[in-house]
């Protein structure tokens, strides 16, 4: 294994590309996500995307926020070579419980992990049950991210990436741009 600090910086592009690909997949072939993790449904991008362009002399950063966020500006930035650096996602469990979370691209760390409208009791006699329940939701999310990231990496190093997926992403960008 190479030095951790070097590895962190050298390969953070993979996290940014992964989130950009995840946005593309969510809009064009969402069935991939539910095929990977049948325990979840209705996966979508929630109300926040951060996009950064590292190629410009002065790095450009766009934050798109809000329930009905207009993603057009983000698509335009992707067209200019930017990548998604943070992405907020939301999905439902089989019991229709909503889970949302922000994924940070460079580390794939999780922020704002929230099981909506679900109260975890901290009464002493109920803590163990609450911990087990919370870990269930947490593992739904981490397993989803792990499986999607693995799928992305296997695709990214394959011939299919250069010979098919990249042009599909380009077409998606053009189509999205053409829609406004």
């Amino acid at each position: 294994m190479i030095d951790i600090a070097v590895a962190y910086n050298k390969y953070k592009f993979a996290g940014f590309e992964f989130l950009t690909w995840l946005w593309f997949v969510t809009e064009t072939k969402p069935e991939i996500i539910e095929d990977i993790t049948p325990e979840i449904k209705d996966f979508s991008i929630n109300d926040k995307i951060v996009i950064e362009n590292f190629k410009e002399d002065s790095a450009e950063k766009i934050t798109i926020n809000g329930d009905k966020a207009n993603l057009d500006e983000g698509i335009l930035a992707i067209k200019k070579g930017a990548l998604v650096t943070e992405l907020k996602i939301i999905f439902k469990t089989g019991d229709d419980i909503e889970v949302k979370s922000l994924i940070k691209g460079e580390s794939l760390d999780i922020s704002g992990f929230n099981v909506l409208k679900y109260k975890f009791s901290t009464a002493p006699e109920e803590i163990e049950g609450s911990v087990i329940e919370k870990v269930y939701f947490l593992e739904l999310l981490t397993n989803l991210v792990d499986k999607l990231f693995q799928k992305f990496i296997l695709l990214r190093i394959s011939e299919e990436w250069k010979n098919g997926e990249l042009s599909k992403i380009s077409q998606w960008i053009e189509k999205r741009r053409g829609s406004y």
Binding site: Y8, K12, G15, E106, L108, D109, D146
Partner: peptide, 12 residues
């Protein structure tokens, strides 16, 4: 070892 893109691949 902290998990981030490189180490996730390393341990996968």
């Amino acid at each position: 070892v902290r998990l981030f893109p490189y180490t996730r691949v390393y341990f996968d």
